[in-house]
C-alpha cells in the first residue's frame, strides 16, 4: 500500500464534516447562500416588474429561442448531477473519480457559458443591447449575473481540481469540494427559475 492510500484509509467516512472548521465552513456557506437568495430574488423581482417595458426594442417572444434554452438547461442540470457524483466519489475516498467528475462538471459549465455568450452576442445583433429598454437592462442584469456565477464556479472548481492534484484529499480539501458542489447546485436551482420566469414566461407573453 502506497503512502497516499494509507493516508486515505485513515480519512473519516465524511471527511468534510470531520473537523469543526469543516463543519463551520459548510454552515457559513449556507449563510452565504441565504444572501444569494436575496440577491437573485431582488433581481427576479426587478425583472418581473420591468419585463413589459420594451420601448422600441424587441420583446422576449420575438427574441428567445427555446431550443437553445432547452440545451443550456439540459447541460446545467447534467453538470449538477456530475457534481453529486464527485461528492459521492469523495465519500468513497476515490480521488481519481472525484477529479474526473469535477472535470466533467467544469467542462459542462464551460459549455453552458459558450451557449450563453453566443446567445447574448446574437441578441445584441438583433438590437437587444444593455441600454435598449428597461426589459433588456433587467434581462442582462439577471441572466448575466447568473452567467457570472457560472464563470466563477468553473474557475473555482477548476482550481480545486489542481489543489486536489497537488495536496490530495484530506480534511482541509474535503470541505472545499463539498462547499463548491453546494454552490454549483444552487446555481442550477437559480437557473430553474430563470428558464421558467425569463424564457418560458417571455415566450407565453
Amino acid at each position: 500500500m502506497s503512502h497516499a492510500e494509507a493516508h486515505l484509509d485513515k480519512l473519516p467516512p465524511e471527511p468534510e464534516k470531520a473537523t469543526l472548521e469543516g463543519r463551520n465552513k459548510v454552515l457559513g456557506f449556507w449563510l452565504f447562500l441565504g444572501g444569494e437568495t436575496v440577491l437573485f430574488g431582488t433581481l427576479f423581482a426587478t425583472f418581473l416588474a420591468l419585463r413589459g417595458s420594451v420601448l422600441d426594442g424587441p420583446t422576449g417572444t420575438e427574441l428567445f429561442d427555446l431550443k437553445l434554452v432547452a440545451a443550456a438547461t439540459f447541460i446545467l442540470l447534467t453538470s449538477s448531477l456530475t457534481s453529486v457524483f464527485a461528492v459521492q466519489a469523495m465519500h468513497h475516498k476515490n480521488v481519481k473519480n472525484l477529479m474526473i467528475w469535477l472535470g466533467v462538471t467544469v467542462l459542462l459549465g464551460f459549455g453552458f457559458l459558450v451557449l450563453e455568450i453566443y446567445e447574448f452576442y446574437h441578441y445584441v445583433h438583433e438590437g437587444h443591447g444593455f441600454t435598449t429598454s428597461a426589459f433588456s437592462s433587467s434581462f442582462y442584469a439577471l441572466v448575466g449575473f447568473h452567467g457570472a456565477h457560472v464563470a466563477l464556479g468553473v474557475l473555482w472548481i477548476g482550481l480545486l481540481i489542481i489543489q486536489l492534484k497537488v495536496k490530495g484529499l484530506n480534511t482541509t480539501t474535503a470541505p472545499k469540494v463539498y462547499v463548491a458542489s453546494l454552490y454549483w447546485h444552487f446555481i442550477d436551482v437559480v437557473w430553474v427559475f430563470i428558464f421558467t420566469i425569463v424564457y418560458l414566461m417571455g415566450k407565453v407573453g
Partner: peptide, 11 residues
C-alpha cells in the same frame, strides 16, 4: 435559506 426566501418573496 428560508430567511433569504422571505426577503425575496417580499421583493
Amino acid at each position: 435559506l428560508a430567511t433569504g426566501t422571505f426577503v425575496a418573496i417580499t421583493a
